[in-house]
Nucleic acid binder design. Structure first.
Length: 661
RNA sequence: GCCAAUGUAGCUCAGCGGUAGAGCAGCCGAUUCGUAAUCGGCAGGUCGUCAGUUCAAAUCUGACCAUUGGCUCCA
């Protein structure tokens, strides 16, 4: 047989040749340096047999992708270290059970079922053992076993996890193991698909165990909770340093930290978890977002409505929330044998508004908007600052339309997202087409298999017609229909849904909503739920991180801080503030008895976009001297010119500032 | 909800068996100063809560509450 090399050369090999054989055939130097191979674009290890006719590239430490092999092998080294660590203190080897240990972005993890809980101290000691295993330069050997023997191997060890993994492998699948250490019983052997580096000695020292966490076996909350150890690994010290620096930098942008420093919101134990208080500065931001939404929606033909926070049980029975969404609702309050619930969503109320009078096809599409505050009983452990709360103001609207109008309306909503994202300069996001999973019918999802499929097809057609790029995800839908979720990452790298756009083929029918079409027939409308600005809590939380607290002028809680140089300049400072406030700008005077330098520093730390210094020169000429976080500092700018410069930025909601003329 | 860690003044943190400390912020006073910290003084805490151990608990133990890191879930 033969293989092709990346330069197009043909290399003749005997049958059953491995990656190592290919490297050796090319040259002894390469054979020593080889860490893995790439076969037709797929990463494999040196021990795997190459396919005849394939293009094979030998990978060395110079190839970036070998870090994948290294991280994978490091996961095994971690497992060996954990076993040694616990056996050293007296645990039986069989009591140290292994789950899975894959690579992830920046590193790897491994899940364990252990006789005791690990502590951060253990982590340090385990890392020391890992370095010893690397230094021991154990060779990695791959071997396969027939299914029966593989199962027997783990059954005798009493290992339910590996046994289950093998049982779930499809018949006929090769069951491979990797052993680090020259012989059985030494080092560590693990069920594994590979690929790996050839020896532990080639692993880079630039790794670090980072966190200890709990994780359900196979991600299923009904199964045992294992202990997971996360680590990061890079090929160079600089890359590791840079990664750790980035993690640190992200912490500085964390909206919980900045939210406290900039007086935007607080959480108070007496009020309850996930129930934030907006401080005056945060309230300004929420209201600016609302103002933006109202302007955009007025242009888009939306009408605003209002609905109560509570409703009798029957509304949510009708909508389907009680059977399908009760877990996320605050428990009922009972008055005179009538149950009332706090609303988790606005939709049932809007359906009632739709039904409040007969509707003609001429009324459609009918777009009802409300920034209603909803309450959801989120799991305690899921709460996170403003990004995951229990009281939330939805940027909500429901669009009722005919099937013929669906595509255009749906795409208009997508267009809305894009308009907002452009305004905020949001460019790293993905659109997720969230579909149901058939197993969830009747449990998580209303039991209408056919309707699910046809609605999902309709959404997919609309997305393709609108040339929207997206990926599909099963089992992520709302209980009443599929969604388009805009997925985004927080400063600390956790993915969450920002905007959402959902199709509802269920509730209009359950509420017996109808309109009269042009032939005088009663028809049920479709409903699109949309929240392009997410909830106002999550949006503000996201924007704090997105801007790192350096908000564009229109969003900044305080837009101008006026710093008088001496007390005698206070009257003029007040005059400047009045002039700014007169045109709707938010300005404050720092009248304290600090030195000017200290006041400038305080305003900078508070991230006030413009600091206007006024002294004798400014007073006499009726000017200001400003410094800004977004443009070059200028002295002696005419007060009028300064004011209109700021007004212009606010009016256009500018992110990029054109310096003052 | 599950696994684990943490919880001392508004914030950042020290103290870790003998009944509480610093810096910054705050307040008062002096200084009136040209673009990131002027000086001095004062005030501020039932050490998350509730039990327990002890002659004595911020310090040890337990339960609960909250926060954080993950898992599950989600706007």
């Amino acid at each position: 047989m033969h293989v092709l090399l990346p330069d197009g050369k043909r290399l003749e090999l005997s049958a059953g040749a491995t990656g190592a054989d290919v490297a050796a055939a090319i040259g002894p130097g390469l054979a020593r340096a080889a860490l893995g191979i790439r076969v037709d674009g797929r990463l494999r290890d040196l021990q795997s047999e190459v396919d005849g006719g394939a293009t094979v590239a030998i990978l060395t430490s110079r190839d970036a992708e070998v870090i994948e092999l290294m991280r994978h092998t490091l996961a095994h080294v971690l497992a060996q270290a954990v076993r040694e660590h616990l056996v050293a203190e007296g645990a039986a080897p069989g009591d140290v059970r292994m789950g899975i240990g894959p690579t992830i972005e920046h590193g790897f993890y491994y899940d364990f079922d252990l006789p005791r809980s690990l502590t951060p101290d253990d982590l340090e000691q385990i890392e020391v053992r890992m370095r010893a295993i690397v230094a021991a330069d154990l060779p990695l050997g791959r071997f396969t076993l027939p299914r029966v023997e593989a199962l027997e191997r783990y059954r005798t060890q009493g290992d339910p996890y590996k046994t289950e993994l093998i049982e779930d492998l499809p018949e006929g699948e090769t069951i491979s193991f990797y052993r680090q250490g020259a012989e059985e019983g030494v080092g560590f052997t693990d069920l594994c698909r590979g690929p790996h580096v050839p020896r532990t000695g080639v692993l880079p020292p630039h790794f670090k165990l980072t966190t200890l966490a709990g994780a359900y076996w196979r991600g299923d909350e009904s199964r045992p909770m294992l202990q997971r150890i996360y680590g990061v690994a890079f090929t160079s010290a600089e890359a590791l340093e840079e990664h750790l620096w980035r993690v640190d930098e992200a912490k500085r942008r964390d909206h919980r930290k900045l939210g406290a420093e900039l007086d935007i919101f607080v959480l108070d134990e007496d009020i309850g978890p996930g129930l934030p208080l907006w401080l005056p500065r945060g309230a300004i931001m929420v209201e600016e977002i609302e103002r933006l939404a109202k302007e955009v929606e007025a242009r888009g033909g939306y009408q605003r409505v209002r609905s109560p926070h509570l409703s009798k049980e029957q509304l949510f029975l009708k909508s389907g929330h009680l059977p399908y969404y009760e877990h996320d609702m605050f428990p009922a309050m009972v008055l005179d044998d009538v149950k009332y619930y706090v609303k988790p969503m606005n939709c049932p109320f809007h359906h009632k508004i739709f039904a409040a009078r007969p509707r003609s096809y001429r009324d459609l599409p009918l777009r009802l908007a409300e920034y209603g505050t909803c309450y959801r009983y989120e799991d305690h452990g899921a709460l996170m600052g403003l990004l995951r709360v229990r009281s939330m103001q939805m940027n909500d609207a429901h669009i009722y339309c005919t099937p013929e109008q669906f595509e255009a309306e749906f795409l208009k909503v997508i267009g809305l997202y894009l308009e907002y994202f452009e305004l905020f300069g949001i460019d790293s996001y993905v659109m997720r087409f969230s579909k149901h999973a058939p197993e969830g019918l009747g449990k998580k999802y209303v039991d209408e298999g056919e309707l699910w499929r046809s609605t999902e097809d309709m959404v997919r057609r609309a997305l393709v017609a609108g040339d929207v790029s997206f990926y599909e995800a099963d089992d992520e839908a709302a209980f009443y229909g599929p969604k388009i979720d805009v997925q985004i990452k927080s400063a600390i790298g956790r993915e969450f849904t920002l905007a959402t756009n959902q199709v509802d083929f269920v509730q209009p029918g359950r509420f017996d909503l109808h309109y009269v079409d042009e032939h005088g027939e009663r028809k049920t409308p479709l409903c699109i739920h949309r929240a392009p600005l997410s909830t106002h809590e999550r949006m503000v939380g996201f924007l704090i991180e997105h801007y790192g607290g350096d908000f564009p002028l229109w969003l900044a809680p305080e837009q101008v801080r006026i710093v008088p140089i001496a007390d005698r300049h206070l009257p003029y400072a007040d005059e400047v503030a009045e002039a700014l406030r007169a045109v709707g700008l938010r300005a404050e005077v720092d009248g304290g008895n600090d030195r000017m330098n200290a006041k400038v520093r305080a305003a900078e730390l508070y991230k006030v976009p413009y600091i206007a210094v006024v002294g004798d020169k400014e007073h006499d000429a009726r000017t200001v001297s400003f410094r800004s976080r977004r443009e070059e500092a200028r002295n002696g700018i005419d007060l009028e010119a300064f004011t209109s410069h700021l007004r212009e930025q606010v009016a256009t909601r500018a992110s990029n500032v054109t310096p003052i003329a």
